[in-house]
Design a protein around this nucleic acid. Structure first.
Length: 320
DNA sequence: AACGCGACCTGCGAGC
DNA sequence: TGCTCGCAGGTCGCGT
């Protein structure tokens, strides 16, 4: 999937195009894309139709749109046992999106031809010069959309990256840690968590419960930049190692963000459909056999956790 | 309790 | 040409 930079690029695009607009019609073309909405297609549509999108928020790789109005609010009031005569509560539910490996959220005119892997179409209230459809396209169907309750975050408001701070988070994303660039990310707490684990450092930085937003690409890139072997035990890192690693993750994420998100091929496009190009700056991921730009040694690929790990065998030594 | 692995999907390129 | 295999950026739930 899109990792943090790609998702953030999508978030910014969506925010511009959908904030304040109302979801008027929902069409689910493939129910597998809303399988995380346990109450089914009818309930999904009923929750969304007539609801207004208030904002677009991200935590790690999860995106959500807090909603107001629509049938979902009735549902939430019932769930909380509120009398219907009480004033409408603050938004307590949201449309949640996860892009999985291949998901895209596209803003398009209804006249545009249907994408091959179009899964959900959301029609938006009309607005001059704004396309009227939000389409969820997903080849591999690891991603999806669902409506979820918003709950208080365990560690304060979520925000950052110019986002408006939100005190609530979808229940399904409540376990996701802050990302390395979140102003409330705690390096010390992360370090202590590493020490309490007995696993490879790469497994740890891919664990969204410890630090969010990092996927296989940026894990390899951050480890390369920090000169750490992916198999180094997480509980063997000393504070300077942890700091170097998180600083490296920040650097690769920021660089990718400034370049509009990484994209290898047409699967990864931003909300307007244009590709990023950070792939050109990769130093380790996918660079098998090419010389390390620091030392000239050939980058090696090894299989780890059923996926590839790319590293420089000279710069990233594994002490025994 | 924590960890590691398979499952969930489609499509593409390499090799035979 | 067409088959199989391995591979692709993620997450979750199950088994140990």
């Amino acid at each position: 999937m899109p990792e943090l930079p790609e998702v953030e690029v999508v978030r910014r695009g969506l925010q511009k195009w959908v904030s304040g607009r109302t979801l008027e019609n929902v069409a689910v073309h493939d129910p597998r894309s809303i399988r995380r909405h346990l109450l089914g297609t009818e309930d999904f549509m009923g929750n969304l139709e007539g609801a207004q999108v208030l904002d677009v928020v991200r935590r790690g790789k999860f995106l959500w749109m807090p909603l107001r109005g629509g049938h979902g609010e009735d549902q939430v009031q019932q769930d909380f046992g509120l009398a219907s005569s009480q004033p409408a509560p603050a938004p307590e539910y949201a449309l949640v999106a996860h892009l999985g490996m291949s998901g895209q959220l596209l803003i398009e005119s209804a006249a545009q031809p249907l994408e091959k892997h179009l899964k959900v179409t959301l029609s938006l209230s009309s607005k001059a010069d704004f396309p009227e459809e939000l389409r969820f396209v997903d080849q591999r169907i690891f991603g999806g959309l669902f409506v979820d309750k918003l709950v208080p975050t365990s560690d304060g408001a979520t925000g950052g990256y110019g986002q408006t701070a939100h005190p609530l988070i979808p229940a399904a994303a409540a376990h996701i840690a802050r990302d390395p660039l979140d102003e409330n990310f705690s390096l010390e707490a992360f370090h202590q968590r590493l020490l309490s684990k007995k696993t490879a450092i790469k497994t740890a930085i891919l664990d969204q419960n410890l630090v969010s937003g990092i996927g296989n690409i940026y894990a390899d890139e951050a480890l390369w930049l920090a000169k750490l072997h992916y198999l180094k035990p997480s509980n063997s890192l000393r504070r300077p190692d942890t700091k170097r690693l998180i600083d490296a993750a920040r650097e690769v994420i920021l660089r990718a963000l400034s370049e509009g998100g990484t994209s290898f091929d047409s699967l990864y496009v931003n909300v307007n459909g244009s590709s990023g190009y950070f792939a050109r700056s990769l130093q380790a991921y996918g660079q098998t056999g090419k010389p390390c730009s620091r030392c000239g040694q050939k980058i090696v690929r090894e299989s780890f956790m059923n996926r590839g790990s790319h590293f420089c065998p000279r710069c990233q030594r594994l002490p025994k």
